[in-house]
Nucleic acid binder design. Structure first.
Length: 931
RNA sequence: GGGCGAAUAGCUCAGCUGGUUCAGAGCGCCUGCCUUACACGCAGGAGGCCGGGGGUUCGAAUCCCUCUUCGCCCACCA
């Protein structure tokens, strides 16, 4: 028995279905990839969110894009693996737990390393799966059986293996140089983790007395007066004529009151400031280079926490930034001659003010100018980063980067959109060594061991009991590795490497990497390098798809601190996951930013909800019509079907082609919108409306009839066509709006309980259903209907009034089209009668169709002849204008001679149709007796 | 300092390899409609010198140059 009509509620409520469907997918294991599958794999590894993260809209966008791609390829019969997981996020996670500990009035140093790390684990066990659960809510079809965490034991083995291999290859070294130091997080940072932000600062001009120079003093310009305590030279450009006489002389450093040399160095820009540069080798990367060239002293004058004072902890050179709690810091030393007692312990910014005052008091402050410059900040806590001389572990990057750059130029992988090429090549070509040690406790402990007796130092895959050389006691490096030193192995460490697992053999290399441009260098470039280096020169993916950023209407990035974020789960609750997904996908063209309005969720997400509801009602209507077994398409003699049927079948093929091509090219918005148009504009607005009379007549719609009364008559073609179109559009839309489509698809006739859309086949265009003739002719029917509707509106015909109309087709094909769809026109234009050729009942309104066919609507007593004359004259004038433009073009020899023949032919064809229209309009004007 | 992107209807944006029925969509607005799938809807409509200027071309929203305004990325702006 067919399902009784319209038992489904008239409004779709996603809350009733989403959780149930997702649970069903999980229970059937449809997201689980099989390593033994004969199908060709398709692999996406998820950019692992931080273990502490909660879902924000940017991740929503990122994951929805991945889900669309993975669902698309799964339906295309690939063995689809979307591998999820989380990142231990060293600094971020440690900070979170430190804040928790702080609420108890303690610091991590009070707990000690072991206890603190256990505390972090406890936190991770408690909340670590939060974001993954949230990803399920938005429909992510990840293979949860393969979920990974960067601190999993197996993953950690991979990290260690990579470190040791790089060590053995000589690509890891201990570097003594100025690095970026976060005084809040108390750790070193990589270049990428110290991000520039423009700041309105000041440029201070400070006088240094000079002994025996051309003048009694020189003036340096600096933005950081507090660092003068660490100055060990003043530099000028060797060819700076103004200052040549100073070179080799000695300046006296104010406040610290120390003699420092004046040296010549090429890197000084004579045009900046005064041409004199103060040189602070321990607190400025550039000055460090100068200091090295001139063998200058390099005193640290700040402690790790950013307060003023010498710090003995740097001297041992073993673990440069090894941070100490304030309480554990050794007492100030008597040798602290550079930092005066009154500045000791003062924060660097307070010290800046104080030093400026002191200089002013001594008459050494010449002037202060406003100065905007870029200052690096910690990407985790936003603290201004302090350049600081220390010892850290570095990876030599050039040997890793070069082959990847070559592979890129050799088109072995691509970045979409292509415009990132220059940025990528530039960064890879000028890559700098990577500081991988972090003075943290949460992370992979650096596997470098040092013998306390013979000082032998090595990296080890296992924890050694004693020194292999002398048997002495060993100590392990205290630091941990940069988080990105583990995540750069994600595409293969998640699959079991260095073990040669079946997963690794099957699912490496992967295919598409979807992420935001922000982490192109942090993560993507490094994954390419590690993949190439450790996986036998095999890059981890073939395409990097960089999507845009989610922003508010002022184009500000959505962020917690700005309070302009949108909680995706709120959206799911209010509008449904499909609505969220629809908005994100339809709102972002290839690589472009997505603008959402956090202050108006209704405007932002209602369209997605409305579309889901539209689909629901299309399904509701069609399902109510369908008998238990709708006629399959193959049973229909398509060429003999009515025009409307042939037309919608042809449109379906075009939609399949367009949507497939769009998804293949990552133009997800275009694919989504194409399907939207098919479902709503073509199927619902036209075809469904066109076949309603036939459905009523067929008896297939048991309008209130008793069950079983609809005996199976001759197969009704419309039912077959409707079933096919609904099935097709649900498949096409499934990657974007998986819930509503799955819910409806399962209700189609003939479905068994095991049938799931999520693993159904992607539709294939059937060339024999493409029908260029129908594509040309049905629009005439549409136009006839629209023009009559327009006349009704124009003349304010009461909605219920049925009118009489007649048409005069311009050609035989037009006659066939219009006559064949007579019922459709009658219904949709609300006519009581439709005559062909000439039979015009008195006064009425006129319209001319694109091909010159004429339409006449009888409007006895309703029409104002003057108005009709004006309207038609206006149309004629517009047509004349278009026509004269076209005529000018066609009489232009240059155009006719130079434009491609088919373009010219098309224009001529257009001219012919317009002339027909003009003739028809002129005839009407004449027959109405318009002046 | 270098590189990149954007500027199209009131708002958010499409418009990919130039061709006047390609000037579009959604939202908003105006007019009618609760037409037995949907008012989260249906029908009709208004609204834009496609940022300014120059150029290439038979033809430019589309290609080139330049200017203006925003945004992003990179850089040893002391």
């Amino acid at each position: 028995m067919p399902q009784p009509p319209f038992t489904l509620p008239p409004q779709y409520d996603p809350r009733d279905v989403e959780g149930r469907l997702y649970q069903g997918w999980l229970e059937r294991g449809v997201f689980t990839a099989r390593a033994d599958s004969p199908r060709e794999p398709y692999v996406i590894v998820m950019p692992p969110p931080n273990i502490t993260a909660i879902l924000h809209t940017g991740q929503g966008l990122n994951n929805v894009i991945q889900d669309v791609l993975i669902r698309f390829e799964r339906m295309r019969r690939r063995e689809a693996l979307w591998l999820p997981g989380t990142d231990h996020a060293g600094i971020a996670t440690q900070n979170v737990v430190e804040r928790l500990v702080a609420k108890e009035g303690k610091t991590r140093f009070d707990l000690g390393r072991e206890q603190f790390v256990e505390r972090v684990w406890a936190f991770v066990r408690e909340t670590g799966s939060t974001i993954l659960e949230q990803l399920k809510v938005i429909g992510s079809s990840c293979d949860w059986s393969r979920t990974r965490f960067t601190l999993d034991p197996a993953y950690s083995r991979a990290v260690r293996e990579v470190f040791v291999q790089l060590w053995e290859e000589g690509l890891i070294y201990r570097g003594h140089r100025v690095i970026h130091w976060c005084p809040h997080c108390l750790t070193a940072l990589s270049d990428e983790e110290a991000v520039f932000a423009d700041e309105a600062g000041k440029l201070y001009y400070i006088r240094y007395p000079v002994e025996g120079g051309p003048q009694p003093f020189l003036t340096v310009a600096t933005t950081r007066p507090e660092t003068i305590l660490g100055d060990t030279a003043v530099a000028v450009h060797p060819e700076d004529g103004r200052h040549a006489g100073f070179i080799g002389k000695t300046a006296r450093l104010p406040i610290a009151n120390l003699p420092i040399p004046i040296v010549a160095d090429d890197t000084v820009d004579p045009a900046f400031g005064t041409g004199f540069v103060k040189v602070t080798p321990a607190h400025d990367a550039n000055d460090f280079e100068i200091g090295t060239r001139h063998q200058l002293e390099m005193p640290l004058i700040m402690r790790p926490d950013g307060t003023m004072g010498e710090d003995g902890g740097q001297a041992d050179g073993r673990s440069g930034g090894q941070s100490r709690p304030a309480t554990a810091r050794p007492p100030d030393r008597p040798t602290a001659s550079r930092v005066p007692r009154e500045l000791q312990g003062l924060d660097r910014f307070a010290a800046r003010e104080k030093i400026v005052q002191m200089l002013e008091a001594e008459g050494l402050l010449e002037k202060v100018e406003p100065h905007t410059h870029a200052v690096r900040h910690c990407y985790r806590c936003d603290t201004v980063v302090e350049p600081r001389l220390s010892d850290q572990w570095f990876v030599k990057m050039r040997p890793l980067a070069e082959p990847v750059l070559g592979a890129y130029r050799n088109a072995e992988f691509r970045i979409v959109p292509e415009r990132w090429r220059a940025t990528f090549e530039n960064w890879m070509g000028n890559i700098r060594d990577w500081n991988i040690s972090r003075q943290l406790w949460w992370g992979h402990r650096i596997p470098v061991f040092t013998c306390t007796q013979c000082q032998h130092q090595w990296a080890d895959r296992e924890d050694p009991a004693r020194c292999p050389k002398c048997g002495g006691a060993v100590i392990q490096d205290l630091d941990v590795l940069d988080t990105w030193f583990s995540s750069w192995l994600w595409p293969f460490a998640t699959l079991g490497w260095p073990e040669r697992t079946a997963d690794l053999a099957r699912f490496y290399p992967g295919h598409t990497l979807v992420t935001a441009p922000e982490i192109l260098f942090f993560w993507v470039a490094r994954m390419l390098m590690s993949g190439y280096h450790f996986m036998d020169r095999t890059l981890p993916f073939t395409t990097v798809y960089l999507h845009g950023t989610v922003r508010d209407t002022q184009h500000r990035k959505m962020s917690k601190s700005l309070g302009n974020g949108i909680d995706p789960l709120d959206v799911v609750r209010l509008y449904g996951a499909d609505a969220l997904r629809w908005t994100l996908i339809a709102g972002s063209s290839l690589g472009a930013d997505v603008i959402l309005d956090p202050n108006d969720l209704e405007t932002t997400f209602a369209p997605g909800r409305n579309f889901a509801n539209k689909l629901w009602n299309i399904g509701r209507f069609i399902l109510a019509q369908l008998p238990e077994r709708a006629p399959p398409l193959e049973a229909l003699d398509v060429p003999s079907l009515p025009l409307a049927d042939r037309w919608i079948l042809s449109r379906a093929q075009a939609t399949i082609r367009d949507a497939t091509a769009a998804f293949e090219q990552f133009r997800l918005d275009e694919g989504a919108k194409r399907c939207f148009d098919f479902a709503w504009k073509e199927l619902a607005d036209w075809y469904v409306e066109a076949v309603k009379p036939r459905l009523a007549a067929s008896g297939a719609a048991p309008a209130g009839g008793p069950p079983g009364s609809a005996a199976v008559a001759a197969p009704d073609a419309a039912l077959g066509v409707l079933a096919y179109c609904l099935d097709t559009v649900l498949r096409l839309l499934h990657p974007v709006v998986p819930f509503i489509t799955e819910e409806l698809w399962q209700k189609l006739p003939g479905r068994k309980p095991d049938d799931l859309l999520v693993v159904a086949a992607w539709p294939r265009a059937q060339p024999d259903l493409a029908d260029a003739e129908a594509d040309r002719q049905f629009p005439l029917v549409q136009e006839a209907i629209s023009s009559i509707r327009m006349l009704r509106a124009e003349y304010r015909v009461p909605p219920k009034a049925r009118l009489q109309a007649s048409v005069q087709p311009r050609s035989e094909p037009a006659r066939q089209a219009l006559a064949g769809e007579r019922e459709t026109i009658l219904r949709l234009a609300q006519l009581s009668e439709l005559a062909f050729d000439g039979k015009r009942a008195g006064v009425g309104a006129h319209a001319v169709l694109a091909d010159g066919s004429e339409v006449f609507v009888a409007l006895e007593g309703e029409i104002d002849v003057q108005q009709e004359c004006r309207r038609l004259a206006g149309e004629l004038a517009r047509l004349e204008q278009q026509l004269s433009g076209l005529a000018a073009k066609l009489t232009n020899h240059n155009f006719v001679a130079r434009a491609p023949a088919e373009v010219v032919a098309k224009e001529r064809e257009k001219e012919r149709a317009w002339r027909d229209q003009r003739q028809a309009l002129a005839g009407k004007l004449k027959s109405l007796g318009c002046s």
